[in-house]
Design a protein around this nucleic acid. Structure first.
Lengths: 201, 201
DNA sequence: CAAATTCCTTATCTTTTGTTAACGTTTTGA
DNA sequence: TCAAAACGTTAACAAAAGATAAGGAATTTG
């Protein structure tokens, strides 16, 4: 994918939250960079400060923690989704997780310094602030739902719901990552799948 | 607590994110209302749209869902914390949870219409937007940590960590609410407590 | 103040999950 | 292309959690 159409995708995403004039877009695009990452490359590594937020324009990434030497996958971002270790980025503290590409990916990035400059740019400041608020609110609501699912649902219920809402993404992800995402082990997910198959069969 | 000092607390909270001139504060305070709620009164009810966000100035509230006729407590807000059913407030959809006072409480509120007007007020718009972004980011980071705890920790580990970080709030809350918060049953939390006592004894 | 309710613990039993290991299949990468 | 690694399932056993019920202490409330 060429850099220009990658940037164009970013513009479309941004404008789904906050419309821009061509002049504003010209200013904003100066702050952006386009990165191409091969499969299994790291976007964020635990222990290092995450210095940028990005938009996945092509490909996919997974977020994971390492505990007792084991990888525990907590999240994914696919095309047209933002990615970052938000806490690390916002507080400028070392990340506690890794973000790694699942496929060859193209990511449009905005680093911390450029974001600050864009926010101070009188032409863009207000709209950047607004985009930041709407983006944070979006992911806040996603997390709200996810915490609710941990509180109110059993692993089996969470998996059944994921089957309904997960869409095609489910078929691009190994099952043991999905197990981690649900907060259970791969073995347990395999048993749940068998239980569900028996019921619906 | 008199309304004036309640509003003053709101100003202090707001200014911990975004400083205000006296003039700006005078404008902002016009949009606020102060509510006093007796213990066990509802701030939000499932099925109704949550029309306001608030700051707990005194007292405390709990958030809970009802599933199969059972109350499942998912969160709390204490003094100097915001409260709302964010998704319901932001999307103007019916809330799926209840928010109820745990004690007699004083809450400073900003309703949806007033927030919109404040955002369109040229004197305040930019700072409101900024406050909204920073608030959303704050709770996003809280949720990020909480989801991570569900993914990477056992219930026992989550409880141990809560004992370290929870502070005095833990002593104001019945234990079965804490069990729900951790994603387990009250009986299971009681067993965990016994296991921990034996180890540290 | 007294009755009722709430709260926490404990016990018993059932269900589910975690752990470890094995096996065949698929995918990966040198 | 071919050996190695990764993946999903299953089994067996241990550990933990859920469900239900009972009892006593603490709190609430009329």
């Amino acid at each position: 994918m060429d850099p220009l159409s990658a940037l164009q995708k970013f513009r479309e995403y941004f404008e789904s939250y906050v419309p821009l004039t061509d002049e504003e877009w010209n200013a904003l695009s100066q702050y952006l960079t386009v990165d191409t990452l091969k499969k299994k490359k790291f976007y964020v590594e635990a222990g290092k400060v995450c210095d940028q937020i990005g938009l996945v324009v092509k490909g996919a990434v997974r977020y994971y923690h390492v505990k007792d030497g084991e990888e525990i996958t907590g999240y994914f971002s696919f095309e047209n989704e933002m990615l970052s270790s938000y806490k690390s980025f916002l507080k400028r503290t070392p990340a506690t997780n890794y973000i790694q590409t699942l496929e060859d990916s193209v990511i449009v990035n905005l680093n911390h310094k450029n974001l600050q400059q864009a926010c101070m740019n009188p032409l863009l400041g207000f709209k950047m602030e607004r985009f930041g608020r709407l983006t944070a609110e979006h992911y806040l609501m996603c997390y709200e739902d996810r915490v609710t699912s941990f509180i109110t649902q059993s692993p089996e219920e969470r998996y059944s719901q994921l089957l309904e809402t997960g869409g095609e993404a489910l078929y691009r992800i190994p099952q043991h990552y999905i197990a981690n995402f649900l907060g259970i082990t791969p073995v347990s997910l395999s048993r749940i799948r068998r239980r569900i198959m028996k019921i619906s069969a």
